[in-house]
């Protein structure tokens, strides 16, 4: 699962049929604006703090946000269909609690991971089925899913549970050296692998194109004979699965399970997707944009850390401001297109 060679910024420029389809037009303007914003922020950072302009600072954006990248991938699928998934943060916490508890009881790491993936995917599938067959707003169904998953965390334990199992601590400490003294964590490779798969699925499979079609006009998609029902259900299952993966990645990162962890992370994921150029109304956006969205959120945090005097709550304020600006931008683009 590591075709990451297809994903470094350099090889992305390689022309492929999909690239030529991606080229040109206002379609990419929101995403390009995000890329521009990211580069500008990086340049400003480099100007203010000499040590900012280092490869490792850039790589740390990935290392510190692997779980958010994976969440944003799942969320991109959901939002592209015009839906929303509020449960992802709570499912991350639940995945961490389940892993920490079972590992403490001596379960095998592989078995724990499989079980966690099944729980996350299963919860997502269940929510998708309810949304589709009872025709209920995704907002409400996934809100219920959020309370359920968070509640289950409290049932498991109110206290933080440390993870001391060998595989997890190994993953937490492992560094994969790149050129020079640069390195990434194994989680980064996994997250980027998932991004690559998501990109392929969205742009090169019928399932992916159906996701876009549903977001463009669900009724039309139905009348065109596309498998609308199964696609919508699957999208929530995918998001649940991504949440479980993100939970495991977060466990590698934090080496504990805590029922209050990942509070509000669903909103970070939604913010990253929107800042990355995906329209909340569905049908327009790119998974690579969502990754850049995560990097933008990451660089805001890095700024606060470098400054040292600002409260970390400034991250939230800046993200809120950015979100507002990007939603207004989207509205402007939509008006022009319309």
């Amino acid at each position: 699962m590591s075709p990451l060679s297809t994903l470094t910024p350099r090889t992305l420029k390689k022309p492929s049929p999909a690239r030529s389809r991606l080229r040109g037009g206002a379609r990419y303007a929101p995403t390009l604006a995000t890329v521009g914003l990211f580069l500008a922020m990086f340049a400003v950072g480099a100007g203010m703090y000499p040590s900012f302009l280092s490869g490792q600072v850039f790589l740390n954006l990935f290392i510190d946000n692997t779980f958010l990248i994976v969440l944003a991938v799942g969320m991109t699928f959901v939002i592209l269909t015009g839906g929303i998934d509020l449960s992802v943060g709570a499912v991350v916490a639940l995945s961490m609690m389940v892993s920490a508890t079972l590992l403490q009881q001596g379960w095998n790491a592989g078995a724990v991971i499989v079980l966690v993936l099944l729980i996350g995917g299963g919860l997502g599938l269940l929510m998708g089925l309810i949304i589709q067959y009872f025709d209920i707003q995704p907002f409400i169904v996934t809100l219920a899913g959020m309370f359920l998953a968070r509640g289950l965390c409290y049932v498991i334990s109110l206290d933080s549970i440390p993870v001391t199992e060998g595989f997890f601590t190994g993953m937490a400490q492992a560094q994969i050296p790149l050129s020079g003294d640069l390195f990434v964590s194994p989680g980064v490779l996994l997250a980027l692998g998932i991004v690559a798969i998501a990109f392929f699925v969205l742009h090169h499979t019928r399932f992916g194109r159906t996701v876009y079609a549903i977001g463009g006009n669900e009724h039309s998609a139905m009348l065109m004979g596309l498998p609308v029902k199964s696609t919508k259900i699957l999208v929530y299952a995918l998001s649940g699965l991504c949440s479980a993966v993100a939970g495991i990645l977060f466990s590698f990162y934090s080496l504990s399970g805590y029922s209050l962890a990942a509070q509000g992370m669903e909103l970070d994921a939604i913010a990253a997707v929107v800042i990355g150029g995906t329209l909340l109304t569905g049908g327009t956006g790119y998974v690579l944009g969502s990754v850049v969205g995560v990097l933008v959120l990451g660089i805001v945090q890095t700024f606060i850390a470098y400054d040292g005097t600002l409260s970390s709550w400034w991250t939230k304020i800046v993200i809120g401001g950015l979100l507002l600006v990007f939603i207004l931008l989207q509205r402007l683009f939509a008006r022009k297109a319309g």
Binding site: G215, G216, M224, G283
Partner: peptide, 21 residues
């Protein structure tokens, strides 16, 4: 149909072949 049932957010070619690419 009267109100064209295609997807406005996709290209002409995709709309022609959607589901049968």
């Amino acid at each position: 149909y009267q109100e064209v049932n295609l997807c406005p957010n996709l290209t002409v070619e995709e709309n022609v072949l959607l589901g049968r690419e």
